[in-house]
Structure formats: structure tokens, C-alpha cells
């Protein structure tokens, strides 16, 4: 259990206050949790109100900061016109596909690094260099290699997601508690079976933390890539709006990104809680 505790500080920092409520898990009662959510919603509403009225009653130049209502109306219009679903859908598709590729490659590499010295010798320097590097710098190369359409964008996203996932998986798998491993071996598990039956579930909290770090990174990379390369997608649409001095359009993009990011991150938190139902963290 020791090693699982190690992943907590990170996980904690990423927790919403809702989960910190001391109420027992199954309780969907009206007590602290609901109050918590209510307060958070109120804060958002107040900020939105300040934005709306600040812009409307002349505190700010409406070109620099158009009122929220105008932005929302624009989103609504574009929604009906069909551009919002296409742009949002494309952005989400690129972010999630790249993220998935990064995970499918990153998790096994992280596990292998922890289990095999040869793999570790090869990847450790690469990950050490790659982790802090601004991955977006590779975009021109990916464009050269993979053309300017979806492929290069998705590969850019996968590339940026890969590092946090590898690092977290490697850390998670190299500090595993020996007791469940000994248990499994005692019952006759083979080395190959241990991987699926013990290492992976035991490292799951850390792996999920890595995924939770990587997903926002993937979304950011998607938007930036779209902005740099143009074309459809929320990032491309925002750059387009900017070029036409359409500030409402730019803010419409920002609001869409905020909402998309919120939904995606919250969904992943829920998934984490489902997967780690066994973990004490799900029961606080």
C-alpha cells in the first residue's frame, strides 16, 4: 500500500473540492456536497455576470471584451449553422485519438522500463530529455513527415501525451508493493501472468494520474496545433476569427474550449473513481 500513497499528492492536487467532502461515498444527500457545488456554481455565475455587465456598461471596450451574451448567441448561431459541432468534434477527435495513441504506446513502454533494464537504458535518457522539452517544437518536422492534415496533428498530440504517461507508468510500476506479487506467485502465477494480474492493477492509480495529466496536455496541444496549421477545428476557427478582427468569434472559441475541457476532465475523474472503486481514495 505504501507506493499507492505516493501517487496521492498529485492526485489530491487535481481533486475537486467536491470529492474532499467528508460525507460517506454512497451518500447523495443534500448536505456538504451539494452546498459545495452550489457555491462553485455561484462563483462562476458571479464572474459571468461581471463579464456581461462590465462589457455592456462601458467599463471595457466591447471590441476588446464583447459581452458574454453576445458570445453565447454567436455560439448558438454557429451551433445551428453546424460549424460548432464540426469544429468541436474535430478538435475532440484529434485530442482523444492522439491521447489514446500516446496511452497505448506510453503505458507498455512505462511498464517495460520498470521491468527490463535494457528497455530502461534505452528509454530513460529519451524520457528525461523529452519530458521537459516543449514538444510543439517538433510540429514543423511532423508536418514535413506527415503532411498538413489530421495525421500530423494527431501525431503531435500523441507525442506530447506520451511523456507524462510514460513517466507516471514507470514511476508507478517501479515502486510496487511486493506483497501482492508474492501472493500471486505463491498461488502459482507465472511471470507473464503477473503483468496483467498484478503489476497493472497495482500501478493503476499512478497510471491514471499520468493519464489525467496527459489529457489536458493533449487538448492544449490540439488547439495550439490547429492554430498554427489552420483549417477546421476550434483552434483554426479562432485564428480565422482573429484574422477577420472578429473578437466575438475568438471569445466564442475560448468559451467552447473551456466547456470542452471541463467536460472531458470531469469525465476522466468519474472514470477514475469507477476504476479505483477498490482504492481507499474513492472512499474518503
Amino acid at each position: 500500500m505504501m507506493n499507492m500513497a505516493q501517487a496521492r499528492p498529485l492526485a489530491d492536487a487535481r481533486k475537486s473540492p467536491v470529492q474532499k467532502a467528508p460525507a460517506p461515498r454512497p451518500a447523495r444527500s443534500i448536505s456538504p456536497q451539494v452546498v459545495d457545488i452550489g457555491v462553485q456554481v455561484a462563483v462562476v455565475v458571479v464572474l459571468a455576470g461581471i463579464w456581461e455587465f462590465g462589457a455592456r456598461f462601458g467599463a471595457l471596450n466591447p471590441f476588446l471584451l464583447p459581452p458574454l451574451s453576445m458570445v453565447l448567441v454567436r455560439i448558438w448561431e454557429d451551433l445551428i449553422a453546424g460549424t460548432v459541432p464540426v469544429d468541436l468534434g474535430l478538435t475532440l477527435y484529434r485530442a482523444l485519438t492522439g491521447f489514446a495513441i500516446g496511452a497505448v504506446i506510453g503505458i507498455p513502454v512505462g511498464i517495460l522500463m520498470a521491468r527490463s533494464a535494457v528497455v530502461r537504458w534505452f528509454f530513460d535518457p529519451l524520457v528525461s530529455i523529452g519530458f521537459p522539452m516543449p514538444k510543439i517544437a517538433f510540429l514543423p518536422i511532423f508536418i514535413l513527415w506527415f503532411d498538413i492534415y489530421d495525421t500530423s496533428k494527431i501525431i503531435m498530440v500523441a507525442f506530447s501525451c506520451f511523456f507524462p504517461i510514460v513517466a507516471a507508468t514507470y514511476a508507478g510500476c517501479s515502486s510496487l508493493d511486493k506483497w501482492p506479487i508474492w501472493s500471486a506467485r505463491c498461488f502459482g502465477a507465472k511471470e507473464r501472468e503477473l503483468l496483467w494480474e498484478v503489476y497493472l492493477p497495482m500501478a493503476m492509480p499512478q497510471i491514471l494520474t499520468g493519464l489525467q495529466v496527459a489529457l489536458p496536455v493533449g487538448m492544449i496541444t490540439t488547439i495550439v496545433t490547429e492554430m498554427l496549421m489552420g483549417g477546421r477545428g476550434v483552434g483554426g476557427a479562432m485564428i480565422m476569427a482573429g484574422r477577420f478582427a472578429d473578437s466575438v468569434g475568438v471569445f466564442a472559441g475560448i468559451v467552447q474550449i473551456i466547456l470542452l475541457g471541463f467536460v472531458v476532465v470531469k469525465s476522466v475523474e468519474l472514470i477514475r473513481r469507477r476504476i479505483l472503486i477498490w482504492h481507499p481514495e474513492s472512499r474518503r
Binding site: W179, W182, P201, M204, W278
Partner: peptide, 11 residues
Amino acid sequence: IVFQNFALFPW
């Protein structure tokens, strides 16, 4: 073996 610290699979 029954380990001193149980060593159950927590998941």
C-alpha cells in the same frame, strides 16, 4: 502461505 500482513490483492 498466510502472510503476517495478509497481502491480499487490494483491487
